[in-house]
Amino acid sequence: MKKGWLIGLPAVLVIGMIAAMFIEVETEPPGDTRIILERTHSTYIAPPCFEHAETTNNLSETSLAKAKELHFKPESVCTTDALQPQKQSLMNLLEQKIGLGKGKWDW
């Protein structure tokens, strides 16, 4: 076995990890993001926006994917803004995917 591999592989891994801290990717909220449905008005509300939302008693909870499947619309600009794509480092995204970090839409 060549010694170059023993030195080269860890070096490549370290360089890759450092690069992942600086490479930014744009992510959208996942389909399983928790959303509140306002069924009377056929709108959905992001949980951080619920306190200021105009609602009736006809509420339920579901995922963003289901709300879009039902053709519900965002209740307010607050909800639209809360669900905007965000830029984050590749490292942060990987941490979220393996469960070591929280994402913007983990409410």
Score class of each variant (00 low, 15 high):
Glu28Cys: 10
Pro29Asn: 07
Pro30Ala: 12
Pro30Met: 06
Gly31Glu: 09
Gly31Lys: 10
Asp32Ser: 08
Thr33Leu: 02
Arg34Gln: 08
Arg34Gly: 01
Arg34Leu: 09
Arg34Glu: 02
Ile35Gly: 06
Ile35Asp: 07
Ile35Phe: 00
Ile35Gln: 03
Ile35Ser: 03
Ile36Asp: 02
Ile36His: 04
Leu37Lys: 10
Glu38Lys: 08
Glu38Cys: 07
Glu38Arg: 05
Glu38Pro: 01
Arg39Trp: 01
Arg39Pro: 00
Arg39Lys: 15
His41Met: 10
His41Tyr: 14
His41Ser: 04
His41Leu: 06
Ser42Trp: 07
Ser42Phe: 12
Ser42Val: 06
Ser42Gly: 09
Ser42Ala: 15
Ser42Arg: 15
Ser42Pro: 04
Ser42Thr: 05
Thr43Ala: 13
Thr43Val: 15
Tyr44His: 12
Tyr44Glu: 03
Tyr44Thr: 10
Tyr44Ile: 11
Tyr44Phe: 15
Tyr44Arg: 10
Tyr44Ser: 05
Ile45Phe: 05
Ile45His: 03
Ile45Arg: 04
Ala46Trp: 02
Ala46Tyr: 05
Pro47His: 07
Pro47Ser: 09
Pro47Val: 11
Pro47Phe: 05
Pro48Trp: 07
Pro48Ser: 06
Pro48Phe: 07
Cys49His: 10
Cys49Ala: 04
Cys49Phe: 09
Cys49Asn: 08
Cys49Pro: 05
Phe50Asn: 13
Phe50Ser: 10
Glu51Met: 10
Glu51Gly: 07
Glu51Ser: 14
Ala53Trp: 08
Glu54Gly: 04
Glu54Lys: 14
Thr56Met: 08
Thr56Phe: 12
Thr56Pro: 01
Asn57Asp: 07
Asn57Cys: 05
Asn58Arg: 11
Leu59Gly: 02
Leu59Asp: 01
Leu59Ser: 07
Ser60Gln: 01
Ser60Lys: 02
Glu61Tyr: 01
Thr62His: 01
Ser63Leu: 01
Leu64Tyr: 00
Leu64Asp: 01
Leu64Ser: 01
Leu64Lys: 02
Ala65Lys: 13
Ala65Leu: 11
Ala65Val: 08
Lys66Arg: 08
Ala67Ile: 05
Ala67His: 07
Ala67Met: 06
Ala67Cys: 03
Ala67Asp: 04
Ala67Gln: 05
Lys68Arg: 12
Lys68Ile: 03
Lys68Gln: 04
Lys68Pro: 00
Glu69Val: 06
Glu69Pro: 01
Glu69Ser: 06
Leu70Pro: 00
His71Cys: 07
His71Trp: 10
His71Phe: 07
His71Gln: 14
His71Asp: 10
His71Met: 13
Lys73Glu: 11
Lys73Trp: 04
Lys73Gly: 02
Pro74Asp: 07
Pro74Cys: 08
Pro74Arg: 12
Glu75Met: 15
Glu75Tyr: 05
Glu75Arg: 13
Ser76Trp: 10
Ser76His: 11
Ser76Asp: 15
Ser76Leu: 13
Ser76Arg: 14
Val77Trp: 11
Cys78Gln: 11
Cys78Met: 12
Thr79Lys: 10
Thr79Trp: 13
Thr80Pro: 04
Thr80Glu: 14
Thr80Ile: 08
Asp81Tyr: 05
Asp81Phe: 06
Asp81Thr: 05
Asp81Ser: 13
Ala82Lys: 11
Ala82Gln: 12
Ala82Asp: 11
Ala82Ile: 01
